[in-house]
Simulated assay, not measured.
Amino acid sequence: MAQSATLPANVAGLTPLPVAYSETETHILYARAHSGSKKANAKGKDAEFPEGRTLFLVNVPPDATEREIIQFFKSSGTVERVVFDSDSMQPDDELGDASESESGDENAHGDAADGEEPEDEERPRKKRKTQRSAAPQIIPLPSPPLRTLRRTGRTAHVIFLDSSSLARALAPPSKPRPWPVDASAPHGLAHYAALHAALRPPLDAVRAHADSWMAHFEWVQAQARQASKYRRGEAVVDADGFTLVTRGGAYGKTLGGGVAVASKRFQEEQSGRRARKNKKEKKEKDAFYAFQIHEKKRKEIIDLKQKWEEDKAKVEKLKQSRKFKPY
């Protein structure tokens, strides 16, 4: 926005800091000393934003980088680090847990690859000596340094090395200070041109990245199979040379896979299923053709006539014996 003639010394407890983008355009930053809250103290935020040397900024430019903010406050003192509000939304402990889990998985794969058995393993297994292979490295796609575009009106915390630097940063400037542009990251239209090129890497780079990623995935799957308690298709043999067999559900299986022994209940279920299937197929074949349907109907009519004749003979026999009383 255009620079106004005079700026107030304080706006809602914030000190205006004019920034000169050009000779005619000025941007206003609003700053104050950071003060912790009870909620922040309970979560341990004081260690992240120490009071007395942390500057709270409002209306940070959406394309500002950490290096530009450090250069802007270089005249006030040495800046230890800059934390944007969008970067602090994800807690650090989650990242730590993820890294620990990844390292734990790698250790588990490494122990399995060395052929060592876990202590809590109940059933014996054959020890196999294998050499631990290094994980294939994933070739990353080319990624040029780009700016992180944030929403307008974002905030940031600037942590200085001492409290005197914070006091100098909050002093109202006599005139707008120029905004330092980071030359390492494209600015303006060059940023979008670099982003367009980064989203369309060359095919050779994409092929190398895909091949390295698949090689790493296959390596992880191989390590997982080696780390599994029982390997599929490999039976577990005890010290006397006998194959260990156990009953599991409808099947009896050897430990680790291999040949399975069907149980009696499973065999009975299979035989009953086959008998029902054969009966159904036979029933469908009896009335499959048209002549079969006609023969079936003709036989039903003949059977009805024969039964009627038999019933008629029974009635005549009852009449002769004078035992028939129709009314």
Rank of each mutant, 00 (worst) to 15 (best):
F56W: 09
F56D: 04
F56V: 05
F56N: 09
N59S: 00
N59R: 01
N59K: 02
N59H: 12
V60I: 11
V60Y: 02
P61K: 09
P61S: 07
P61M: 10
P61H: 06
P62D: 13
P62M: 05
P62G: 08
P62T: 03
D63K: 06
D63N: 14
D63R: 08
A64R: 04
A64M: 03
T65D: 04
T65E: 06
T65L: 05
T65A: 10
E66I: 07
E66Q: 06
R67D: 10
R67P: 00
R67L: 10
R67K: 12
E68N: 03
E68C: 02
I69N: 00
I69H: 01
I69L: 13
I70Y: 15
I70A: 14
Q71Y: 05
Q71E: 02
Q71C: 14
F72W: 11
F73N: 00
F73T: 00
F73A: 01
K74E: 10
S76K: 01
S76Q: 05
S76P: 04
G77W: 02
G77T: 00
G77M: 03
G77E: 01
T78A: 06
T78P: 07
T78D: 00
T78Y: 01
E80M: 07
E80F: 06
E80H: 04
V82G: 00
V82W: 00
V83Y: 05
V83F: 02
V83H: 12
V83Q: 04
F84S: 01
F84A: 05
F84L: 04
D85L: 10
D85P: 02
D87F: 03
D87W: 05
S88R: 12
S88F: 11
S88D: 15
M89P: 01
Q90K: 04
D92S: 14
D92L: 03
D93G: 00
D93H: 15
D93C: 05
E94C: 09
E94W: 15
E94T: 09
E94K: 12
L95W: 01
L95Q: 14
L95E: 14
G96Y: 04
G96P: 05
G96M: 14
A98F: 09
A98G: 02
A98W: 04
S99L: 13
S99Y: 12
E100R: 11
E100H: 11
E100F: 08
S101R: 15
S101L: 12
E102D: 07
S103G: 08
G104W: 10
G104Y: 02
D105M: 08
D105E: 12
D105F: 05
D105W: 09
E106L: 11
E106T: 06
E106F: 09
N107K: 08
N107L: 14
N107E: 15
A108H: 15
A108K: 12
A108N: 14
H109V: 09
H109S: 08
G110A: 14
D111I: 13
A112C: 02
A112L: 07
A113E: 10
A113K: 06
D114Q: 07
D114L: 13
D114M: 12
G115P: 07
E116F: 13
E117L: 14
E117D: 13
E117Q: 13
E117C: 11
P118N: 09
P118W: 03
E119L: 14
D120H: 15
D120T: 07
E121N: 13
E122D: 14
E122L: 14
